[in-house]
Amino acid sequence: MKAIVHEGTAGLEGVSYREIEEPLPGKGEVRIRLKAAGLNHRDLFVLKRHKENEPPLIIGSDGAGIVESVGEGVTAVKAGDEVIINPGLGWPDQSDAPPEGFEIVGLPFHGTFAKSITVPAENALPKPKHLSWEEAGVLSLAALTAYRALFTRGKVKPGMKVLIPGIGSGVATFLLQFAKAAGAAVYVTSRSKEKRQKALELGANKAIDSSADWNEALNGEKMDLVIESVGAATFNQSLGQLRTGGTIVTFGASAGDDVTINLRTFFYGQFNMLGSTMGSGEELKDMLHFIEEHQIHPVMDRTYSLSEYQEAFTRLERAEQIGKIAFSIE
Results as ranks from 00 to 15, higher is better:
K206Y: 03
A124Y: 11
G275D: 05
P108E: 05
S280A: 12
T112L: 09
Q295R: 15
Q237P: 00
G203Y: 08
A37P: 14
I32E: 04
E317T: 00
L239N: 01
R49P: 02
S211R: 07
K115H: 13
V249N: 01
P56R: 11
I85V: 14
A232R: 13
Q197S: 12
L24W: 09
S132Q: 11
N215Q: 15
G101N: 05
S328I: 04
S238A: 15
E52K: 15
Y147P: 11
G183I: 12
K222M: 11
P25Y: 08
P25Q: 13
L125C: 06
I85P: 03
N40I: 08
I322S: 00
K324C: 02
Q321L: 00
A114D: 06
V162I: 07
G137A: 12
A204W: 04
N262H: 11
P87L: 10
L202K: 06
S238C: 13
Q270S: 10
R31V: 12
A217T: 05
V46W: 06
L150H: 02
P92S: 04
A233Q: 06
K324M: 05
E308D: 15
T247D: 00
I32T: 09
A326P: 10
M278A: 11
L107Q: 04
E311Q: 14
S140A: 15
N272M: 04
G71C: 14
F290I: 06
K161C: 02
R42K: 04
H50F: 06
W133L: 13
E201F: 05
V46E: 05
K129A: 15
G183W: 07
E135R: 09
S211N: 08
H50E: 07
K2F: 07
I58M: 04
W214N: 00
R31S: 07
P99C: 09
Q177V: 03
D301G: 05
K195V: 01
K285M: 04
D286S: 14
I227E: 00
K129T: 14
K35G: 10
P98A: 09
A36F: 11
E100C: 06
E72Q: 15
V230N: 04
L44D: 03
S254K: 03
G60T: 11
G275H: 05
T75N: 12
F178S: 08
T303P: 13
P108S: 03
L44E: 06
E52M: 12
T303D: 12
T234F: 02
T234I: 01
G26A: 10
N86R: 11
V15M: 13
T112A: 14
D209L: 13
K161W: 01
P298S: 08
D213A: 06
L200P: 06
K2W: 07
G159R: 09
F271Q: 01
I296G: 07
E228R: 02
S116Q: 01
L125D: 00
D258C: 05
F102M: 09
E330N: 14
M300F: 05
V5R: 03
Y304V: 02
D209R: 10
L274R: 13
G240P: 03
V299A: 10
T75W: 09
E311L: 13
G137K: 08
R264K: 13
F45I: 07
T75Q: 14
K324L: 02
V119N: 03
G65F: 08
